[in-house]
Simulated assay, not measured.
Amino acid sequence: MDESTIRLINLIDVLSEKYIDVPEISEECMNTWSTEQITYYYESGGTNKPSSLNGMASQGHDQPGGSVEQTEDPAAHRNTPASARANQFAATVAGYRAQTIADGLPSRPHGLFPPRDPLLRELAEDPTAHPFEKHLAGEHSPYELLRNGSWTSGDEAAQAGFDMRLFYKDKQRDDRYGTILGAARLGDRASIGNGYWMSAHGGAVESLLDEATAELGKMEFSPMLSTIEAGFKIKKSVPLHTTLRIECEIREIKGMRCWVDGYVKDLSGVLLASCLAQLVDLQQLWAAQGQSP
Rank of each mutant, 00 (worst) to 15 (best):
D2K: 13
T5H: 05
L8S: 11
D13R: 03
D13I: 03
L15P: 02
S16L: 09
K18E: 03
Y19M: 04
V22I: 01
P23V: 13
C29G: 02
C29R: 04
T32A: 08
W33S: 07
Q37F: 11
Y40L: 09
Y42I: 11
E43I: 06
S44Q: 07
G45P: 08
T47D: 06
N48D: 09
K49W: 05
L53D: 09
G55D: 03
M56Q: 02
Q59K: 15
Q63S: 04
G65A: 00
G66Y: 00
G66T: 03
P74T: 02
A75Y: 00
R78K: 10
T80V: 07
P81M: 02
A82Q: 13
S83K: 10
R85G: 04
A86I: 14
N87H: 09
A90Q: 12
A90F: 08
V93I: 14
A98C: 09
A98N: 11
G104P: 13
P106L: 13
P109D: 13
P109V: 13
L112S: 15
P115W: 13
R116K: 15
R121V: 14
R121D: 15
E122P: 05
E125M: 14
D126F: 12
H130T: 05
F132T: 00
F132L: 01
H135V: 08
H140F: 05
S141D: 15
P142C: 02
L145S: 09
G149I: 12
G154M: 09
E156T: 14
Q159H: 11
A160F: 08
F162V: 11
D163P: 01
D163W: 05
M164Y: 07
Y168A: 06
Y168E: 09
K171D: 05
Q172D: 06
Q172H: 10
D175T: 00
D175W: 10
Y177A: 00
G178L: 05
T179L: 04
I180H: 02
A183Y: 00
A183R: 03
A184I: 11
R185F: 06
G187M: 15
R189C: 10
A190G: 15
A190R: 11
I192P: 10
G195I: 12
Y196T: 12
Y196Q: 14
S199E: 09
S199C: 13
A200F: 12
A200V: 11
G203I: 07
V205P: 12
V205T: 15
E206W: 08
E206G: 13
E206P: 08
L208V: 11
L208A: 13
L209R: 14
T213L: 15
E215L: 15
G217F: 11
G217I: 11
K218Y: 12
M219A: 15
F221K: 14
P223H: 04
L225P: 06
E229Y: 06
A230W: 02
K233W: 01
S237K: 04
P239F: 06
H241Q: 04
H241W: 04
L244H: 00
L244P: 02
E249K: 08
I250G: 00
E252L: 06
E252I: 08
G255E: 05
R257V: 01
K265M: 08
K265H: 11
L267Q: 09
G269H: 07
G269R: 06
V270C: 05
L271S: 03
L272E: 01
C275Q: 01
C275L: 08
A277C: 07
L282R: 02
L282C: 03
Q283E: 07
W286R: 01
A288V: 02
A288I: 05
Q291M: 13
S292E: 03
P293F: 10
